[in-house]
Design a protein around this nucleic acid. Sequence first.
DNA 1: ATCTTATCATGATAAATATCAATTATTAGA
DNA 2: TCTAATAATTGATATTTATCATGATAAGAT
Lengths: 231, 231
Amino acid sequence: MSGQNLIENCAECSSGWKNFQLLTKSEMLLINQNRYEATFKPGEVMLKQGSPTSNALFLADGMAKLYMEGLKGKNFIMSIGLPGMLIMGPGAYVNSRHTYSVAAITTVHACFISFEIFKQLVRVNGEFAESMIEDISSKSLKTQIRMVNLAQKRMSGRLAEVLLYFSNEVFNNDEYDMILSRQELGEMTSMAKECVVRILKELEDSGVIYSDSSKIKILDKERLIEISDKG
Amino acid sequence: MSGQNLIENCAECSSGWKNFQLLTKSEMLLINQNRYEATFKPGEVMLKQGSPTSNALFLADGMAKLYMEGLKGKNFIMSIGLPGMLIMGPGAYVNSRHTYSVAAITTVHACFISFEIFKQLVRVNGEFAESMIEDISSKSLKTQIRMVNLAQKRMSGRLAEVLLYFSNEVFNNDEYDMILSRQELGEMTSMAKECVVRILKELEDSGVIYSDSSKIKILDKERLIEISDKG
DNA sequence: ATCTTATCATGATAAATATCAATTATTAGA
DNA sequence: TCTAATAATTGATATTTATCATGATAAGAT
């Protein structure tokens, strides 16, 4: 991790959070004055679960995994952090502790913004507050849906769901690099790594996907959606 | 369900939402003018998943189950709704649809408050907006923790967790009426009803709880917490 | 290039959980 | 109170998933 500012200012940042558009010029300036940048190498931990939520995090580029550290050292990967996303757990407004850890998957260029400034703007700018609620709500909704799926789907359904997640929400492409290891895919779907391997193979054998250890190609999306939906 | 106003006004309602205290008198009046009451019998559906979020819901008294309707008609019970809670899913700020259904467990006297009014107040009153974010965040945090537990704990851990939930958050008592059927306990812990029965029996046999079909008594809380924590 | 280490893959087995079938309470109505 | 319906319970069995052991590949380091 190294920290020199490469981004001129937030207003012109191509990876900026869309909700910042609701801020006035002076509010935007405030944000810009209370941020710092840092670069992380793959694998480096960017935010640690349990640590104080002094900053909100944005990625200028690269990808990160957001994961909760659960029982017996087992992790649970909740989602992939991407440029343009506000990365701030619900703990910020509950106990001032990060709810989850964040670790770089690729090289990540990140921007930390003072959470106090955030809070301040929420109180002052109603539109911004509303957009903040929308952002939090949207994440909460995803978590709820994820929870039910986790509770009700069997392994193949859960894995299909995650493969679609990468296609639709991470890469916007039916062919993509599998940036997670089998172990990590398991941590995302609540399955053992061996089972991930087996189900990927099943999906490949039945012509739904092509898969090698580092690439996924969705060949029959209809079918994959069906597998995900039926559970 | 019948609807005549039994509550004089929100400001003096003993089951009122604590965040309403942040509103001015005139704002409170606005709330009070845009609400209606209704009484539900046990089992009646109060809010239906997918329907428009035209109102936020409060319980004046009684209990309700908040549940998502998932795959193959299987429900997933997320939590128990109680007096004093704002019952409004994240969908309100995402797609204007209720994320979950709510059904009365006991006889419930409920209060519906126009969601438009809510939104309006959020934009105008910064403190209220912040308290709203706190409320949503707190629910989101609970969902996340629940999700990880669901993903990582085995049956006995999940059931122990729910028994503690009833004790600590619903009844504030180590002895309580089990208001959910075995089937419903299964819908809350993602287990088959037969397994609920078996694990309750195990817990009883090992002296951790007393249990009959309608009552639970926690005899060894330490141990129950341990079972919940270890998964 | 070669060594080392981590990941991936596969079969065999064990453990956890769900389903099925049948029986016994309980509860709600008539 | 009696009866019908619903929920709880139990045992047997099937299914799903995890673990263990081991070898094969791939990726990094020297």
